[in-house]
Structures are given as structure tokens and as C-alpha cells.
Nucleic acid binder design. Structure first.
Lengths: 134, 134
DNA sequence: TACACCTTAAACACTTCTCTTTAACATTGC
DNA sequence: GCAATGTTAAAGAGAAGTGTTTAAGGTGTA
């Protein structure tokens, strides 16, 4: 079984690139074309994305769906909604309003503009009162 | 491109199993053998491991290993330990104790129960004092 | 012992990923 | 313009992962 998602080739490229080398320089070192370095690097980042998505799924696995924050909602109203729905389930949310709003926003900043939600956000909660946003 | 590392089949099995069903019951529902459910479930957990290893690699790419927080440690003691070890390396941690505890906890809430660590957590630090937990 | 539950190994068809080359296109800075 | 950097698409060979069956081996418990 492969260790991690990244191949040796992909790690090699990422390490060299991290030191500041250009794709061409890396290509010269590992004896291939710069186009290939680009492809390998891209595949590596796609794998990293997939790894993140996988762990997100894990979080939602021991959580249950709490509510959906509809597009256009004000973040402050969203927080109120979350507290209400959590209370219905008898779960105490681990965060206060300010922390909660920051957490929602940080989960994927591009989904918000100013205080407003731009696209539906699914909210999950576990028994400890942790929240996840999908 | 597949979304995440897990196949639909693997997620399906994990979800059913999470509800408490036996492998045989899941097998009946998804119309296959219990041996196959076992195989799929195992593959799913291997994929989850690989996802974790992948992100660990990412952290280590521009960070170095700082310490390991042992299972059973109190989060407050963990924070103290981190500050001490960072000082040994001559690196100033970017966070105060409260922020630090929140960051550790948020890195993967399921690894904690109340103030205690449920499984070992690897801690990485970079020259800017950013912390990562694997 | 018998039963329910879980795990493992081998084998197979099938699909997907990986690395590679080649050739073209986009962006930036001189 | 042109040189350097990075990106993309198409195509192919080889490698790796997936779901499946069958058959055997564990573990725990009534």
C-alpha cells in the first residue's frame, strides 16, 4: 500500500519547488520536461485537495445535519438559527456568537460577501457541540 | 475527478455501519456478501489513513516536528509543552495560550473529549511560529 | 459446541491514476 | 519582440485501486 496519497515523484517535485526552483530547473534535475513537472505538481495539489475533502467527510460522519443556511442569509441570523436548532436537539453549541460567526466564515471565506451568505451552507453538529460546514 | 478519496460504495458502507448495523445487515441492504462489506470498510479506513498522511506531509514540507502530545494529556498542559519546546528551537509561537488551545482543538475536534486528548497528536511548527497538528 | 460477527487471502475483470512526450497557448518582464 | 515561466490538451503504456466471489480462519458469547 502506498504511503499517503502522493507518489514519490509528486513529493519530489513539491520539495524542489518549495525551495524556490522554477519548473524548468526542477525538470532539469529530475530529467524530464517542464510540462511534465507542471502536470505532476498539479496532480499533487489535486491529491492534497482530495485528502482534505476526505477528512471533511469523516467529520460529518459522526455528526448529524443540523440545518441549512440559505443563500442570502445574514451571518448573524445564521448564528441565531444554529443556536435555536441545536437547542431543539438538546445540544449546547461550543461557541459563542462571535466565535461561531468566525468559524462559519473561516470554513470557506469565498462563500460569503460581507455579512451575507452567497450559497447554501450545510451545517453539521456532533454530540460535543462541535460544528462543521459543508 | 473523484470527490475526496472515498468511493460512493465506501461512504455508503461507512454511513450504514455508523448507525450500528452489522456487516451482514449492511451486506443485505446493499446486496452483496459480508466479506465484501468487510473489504470495502477496510479499504475506506486505509484511504482515510492515507488522507491523514498526505496532509502530514504537507505540514512537514515547510515545518519541522516540534513534539507529540500524548493521549490523555490535558490541553492546557499541551499548550505549556508546546511553548517550552518552541522556545528551545528559538521560535516564538504566534498564539497565546487560549488561541493555541482553540487551534489544537479545531484541528480535529473528534480527537478530544472535554479538555483531554484522546489520541496522540503530532505538532509541527514553521519559522513564522505557525502551528500544525497531524 | 454452536452461532453470530468480523477478518483475510487469492483471483479476476474493470476502471482509474500516473508519468511521459509533444505541441500549442498565456503571462510577465526586459 | 522575445525570453522565461507556467498551463493545457491529447495520447499511450504501465501501474495501482476497486468491487466482487469463494473459501478459510478468527473471536467472543450463550
Amino acid at each position: 500500500m502506498k504511503q499517503g496519497l502522493l507518489t514519490d515523484r509528486q513529493k519530489e517535485v513539491l520539495r524542489y519547488r518549495k525551495t524556490g526552483l522554477t519548473q524548468q530547473q526542477v525538470a532539469d534535475i529530475i530529467q524530464t520536461s517542464k510540462a511534465n513537472v507542471c502536470t505532476i505538481e498539479k496532480a499533487a495539489y489535486e491529491n492534497i485537495e482530495r485528502a482534505k475533502e476526505t477528512l471533511e467527510f469523516l467529520y460529518t460522519l459522526d455528526s448529524e445535519h443540523l440545518c441549512t443556511i440559505k443563500s442570502g442569509t445574514d451571518l448573524i441570523d445564521a448564528a441565531t438559527l444554529i443556536f435555536q436548532d441545536a437547542e431543539k436537539l438538546g445540544i449546547k453549541v461550543k461557541y459563542n456568537t462571535l466565535e461561531l460567526i468566525n468559524r462559519i466564515h473561516d470554513s470557506n471565506p469565498s462563500r460569503f460577501r460581507a455579512r451575507y451568505v452567497r450559497e447554501d451552507v450545510e451545517v453539521y453538529i456532533n454530540r460535543e457541540g462541535d460544528l462543521f460546514f459543508g
